[in-house]
């Protein structure tokens, strides 16, 4: 609970400091940071751990920021988080920051789960439909999930748009058991 709220405060502070130019480049920085966290599973724990000297931890974090465009902002953020022993909230900050920036551009990130690889024209028509529903430009990320059997499931940070066959079968099953009652 506290983590999400704290992450919100940090991301708001970063956005407040950003210039229009930096807003565009920060998304790429977020991508770098997110992939680092994803690939190096121990990175966050190590940087947040009291087992290692603080200067070493800061050094380690700054190694990552070297690859980023807005070094000054990230260096500052990492310093504060490590000193406050709150580096564990960095994933939440990244998610919130990305959502905030996309929202300011009237964009939304959508994870689209499909049962098997769909042809491009079908994906395009799905994304057009999703754009109509969400009333925002969408950044589509496709995922193959055979469990949904067919159709699609689109997930944003606050919505689930479920047009999967699995969902329909579950609904049919529920309806059948209700009728049996």
């Amino acid at each position: 609970m506290k983590n999400i709220l704290a992450a919100q405060r940090y991301s708001h502070a970063i956005i407040y400091e950003l210039t229009a130019k930096e807003i565009n480049s920060i998304l790429a920085d977020i991508e770098i940071m997110s992939s680092t966290i994803k690939n190096e599973s121990e990175f966050v724990n190590t940087v947040n751990s009291y087992l290692y000297p603080i200067d070493k931890r800061i050094e380690l974090a700054l190694e990552v920021s070297k690859r980023m465009t807005n070094k000054k902002i990230w260096n500052n953020l990492f310093n504060i988080l490590i000193k406050k022993h709150r580096f564990n909230i960095i994933p939440a900050i990244l998610i919130d920051l990305e959502n905030e920036i996309l929202a300011s551009k009237n964009q939304v990130k959508v994870e689209l789960s499909v049962a098997h690889q769909l042809p491009d024209n079908l994906l395009d028509s799905i994304s057009i439909e999703l754009k109509k529903i969400l009333e925002k430009d969408i950044i589509l990320k496709t995922k193959i999930d055979p469990e949904i059997l067919g159709g699609f499931v689109a997930t944003t940070d606050s919505l689930i748009i479920d047009g999967s066959i699995k969902n329909h079968l579950i609904k049919l099953l529920k309806m059948k058991s209700k009728n049996r009652k």
Binding site: M1, I4, G151, L159, I161, D162, G163, H168
Partner: peptide, 22 residues
């Protein structure tokens, strides 16, 4: 096929029969 649009939230705290949803 109908499409179900469901608004979601994330459980951020749970305990004592209470859940806080973000």
């Amino acid at each position: 096929l109908d499409i179900d649009i469901t608004e979601t939230g994330k459980v951020v705290q749970v305990g004592d029969g209470i859940a806080r949803v973000y």
